[in-house]
Simulated scan of single mutants.
Amino acid sequence: MRHPSLQKACLSLEKATQAYETLCTCRDFKTFRFAWADFLQAHNHVFSMLANWAKDRPKHNAWYGCVRKIRREDELLSYVHQARNAFEHGTQEIHGESGPKFVYKLKGPMLLVPNGIQILGEVTESQEWKPPSPELHTFINSKKSYAPPKRHLGSQIPDPTPQKVAELGITFAELKLQEAEERELEG
Rank of each mutant, 00 (worst) to 15 (best):
P131H: 06
G90R: 01
V113Y: 11
V123H: 06
W129T: 07
P58A: 05
S155L: 15
P160C: 07
E75G: 02
A51C: 07
E122N: 13
N52I: 06
V113C: 13
E88P: 03
Q82I: 01
G116T: 09
K150T: 13
K55S: 08
K150A: 15
S142E: 14
P160Y: 11
I140F: 10
L76I: 03
E125T: 13
Q127S: 12
Q127H: 13
G99P: 03
A62M: 06
T138M: 08
N61A: 13
K69N: 09
E93M: 10
R84N: 06
M49R: 04
M110L: 15
V67N: 00
L136I: 02
Q156M: 14
R71T: 03
L153Y: 05
T161L: 07
C66L: 14
F47R: 00
L106P: 05
F139D: 01
K107Q: 12
K105A: 10
L112W: 08
M49L: 03
M110Y: 13
P160H: 06
N115C: 09
G90I: 00
P58S: 04
V113E: 11
N141Q: 12
K105P: 04
L111N: 06
R151E: 13
Y64D: 00
R72Y: 10
P109W: 15
Q118R: 14
E128H: 15
R72W: 07
A54V: 03
I70K: 06
P114A: 08
D74L: 01
S142Y: 09
I94E: 02
T91C: 10
R151M: 15
L106D: 13
K59C: 10
K150S: 15
R57I: 07
P158F: 14
F139K: 00
A83I: 01
H81D: 06
C66P: 04
P58N: 04
K59M: 11
R71S: 03
A86P: 03
G116K: 06
P158A: 14
Q82H: 06
K144Y: 05
E75H: 10
K69I: 04
E88H: 09
P100Y: 03
I70G: 00
N85K: 05
V123R: 10
G90D: 01
E73H: 08
H81P: 00
D159L: 15
W63A: 01
F87R: 01
P162S: 08
N85W: 05
K69W: 08
